[in-house]
């Protein structure tokens, strides 16, 4: 079992996401994350999928994706590729000590503090999924109100 990330260029037509996710369901593929947005090409979107499975499963996934008419191009991201994820975390703090600690952890992780209220602080983390996971682990002793992650996106170097 290994983590694979692929980047797919698709025609931006209605139902394309339904077709892709329907195929995953039909073929029993379990997806870690999926992120979608417009691309540099007019009328096309780029979908980045993170998937954990053995090499046979991964091969089937790519082949099945290729069969979808809307899928124009599939690129496998290499191990050294540029992979990022954005995560927003809203955490409760009981006292000023906790608040100061969260702020100083965030400095180390180069997080942004994007909101603060009477009892919560909201942080923005950008990095590869490992960094995000590590930070969430680090602050797990605090009471987390909400976590929102975009899922992995990325591209190959150069």
């Amino acid at each position: 079992m290994q983590n694979h990330v692929i980047s797919i260029l698709v025609n931006n037509e209605p139902g394309v996401l339904a077709k892709i996710s329907g195929m995953f369901y039909r073929r029993n593929f379990n997806i870690d994350s999926i992120s979608v947005g417009s691309s540099e090409k007019y009328g096309m979107s780029r979908i980045v999928i993170s998937f954990t499975g053995d090499s046979n499963e991964f091969e089937q996934l790519v082949k099945q994706l290729h069969k979808l008419i809307e899928v124009v191009k599939i690129k496998k991201l290499e191990n050294d590729s540029l992979v990022r994820e954005l995560c927003l975390i809203k955490v409760y703090y009981n006292d000023s000590k906790a608040r100061e600690d969260l702020i100083s952890y965030s400095e180390v992780y180069k997080n942004k503090i994007i909101d603060i209220s009477q009892d919560t602080i909201t942080l923005q983390i950008i990095g590869d999924p490992d960094k995000v996971n590590n930070f969430i682990k680090l602050i797990s002793k605090y009471k987390i109100k909400e976590i929102c992650r975009t899922g992995t996106t990325g591209m190959n170097r150069g």
């Binding site: 139902g15 339904a18 077709k19 195929m23």
Partner: peptide
């Protein structure tokens, strides 16, 4: 039908 035919056609169009 666009939803129903998704997994049983090679492709579908509206």
């Amino acid at each position: 039908m666009m939803g129903i035919t998704l997994p049983i056609t090679k492709h579908n169009f509206q």
